[in-house]
Design a protein around this nucleic acid. Sequence first.
DNA 1: GTCTATAGAAAGATAGAC
DNA 2: GTCTATCTTTCTATAGAC
Lengths: 195, 195
Amino acid sequence: MARKTGSHSEITGPRIRAAALTLFARNGFAAVSMRQIAAEVGVQAGALYLYTPDKETLLFDLLKSHMDELIATWDALPPAATPPARLEAFVRFHIGFNLDRADAVFLSYMELRNLGPANFATIEALRRDYENRLGAILHDGQAAGDFTAPDAKLATLAIIAMLTGVTTWYREGGRLSRDRVGDIYWDMVRKSVAA
Amino acid sequence: MARKTGSHSEITGPRIRAAALTLFARNGFAAVSMRQIAAEVGVQAGALYLYTPDKETLLFDLLKSHMDELIATWDALPPAATPPARLEAFVRFHIGFNLDRADAVFLSYMELRNLGPANFATIEALRRDYENRLGAILHDGQAAGDFTAPDAKLATLAIIAMLTGVTTWYREGGRLSRDRVGDIYWDMVRKSVAA
DNA sequence: GTCTATAGAAAGATAGAC
DNA sequence: GTCTATCTTTCTATAGAC
């Protein structure tokens, strides 16, 4: 198809989202101006409004994409045979996926309050959706006698909080490799729900 | 001493800090204006500057007070005899203290990026100071053969993240009492570092 | 598709009256 | 100690030229 002079929509859109993600995570949604995002991309502020109706929608799209991808990626993995094996897979998946997307993870926990009620509810529902996948593993394992958790719902929240915390301190090239971190967390999680 | 007409400094200062804490936690530091804080207190915006040199210092004072009180309160507790007993005390203390101050906890994790380098370093040092108290318990317990944690530093961070997560979902008057939550988390923590 | 220019609102912080 | 008033800057979002 013909390329119009000055048309870069196919590349500018993603670059805007990437710049917004980085800046929002680093400085906070409210502290980042549309001008800053535009400057990072190399366009003027007004040009951003060709790609988003407003600032909040830009944030919402980032969070929605992140949650959709999180769930879709997990669901695409072949399920392991037993609850303990599924739990191990979940631990390693959650750490790995979130470490690859530390900015989006931070945003999805810290900037929800900048969404309007409808957008907020959408993201919250996706989060619960994801958490329920861990909840189901714990439930199945409990029924099979593999796990003993006094309260499956609390165990879910406790494990997710523990795993997600990795994104706050892990640094690439640091003392521990990702696999080693996965090993250590899996050891703790495994024991924490042990029968 | 004589009371000057219109003088309310002894009450206004704390009320400003309380309003700022609530508003910052609910809406985010950057999203809250000095005018909003003043309106909540019932004074005009200019009056706030009698109590703080600027907005960032107001945030810093809130975070500093919180960390100081956290550490002082823990240090004032009589230490339990054994590492497992000390670990249990820490779990219950951390949950209880943080549930009483959910706003400050949220702030101290989410709004550090709004501090300048010097203020940031101060709060980070206090946080490490507190974390090291848990680290010492795990270290002592490991030496005594009470615990087996593949990596004491990671276990510290994992446990803190897990416990602090309670503040994101706990609601007073909900399904579980605080004591019950403490029981369940202690069960998981105890097992997670079991020998 | 992007730019310049700008409308209109709101921000942090200060000055001076009371 | 607080208020009113305001300076100055910055913000989101839009209009219209190219």
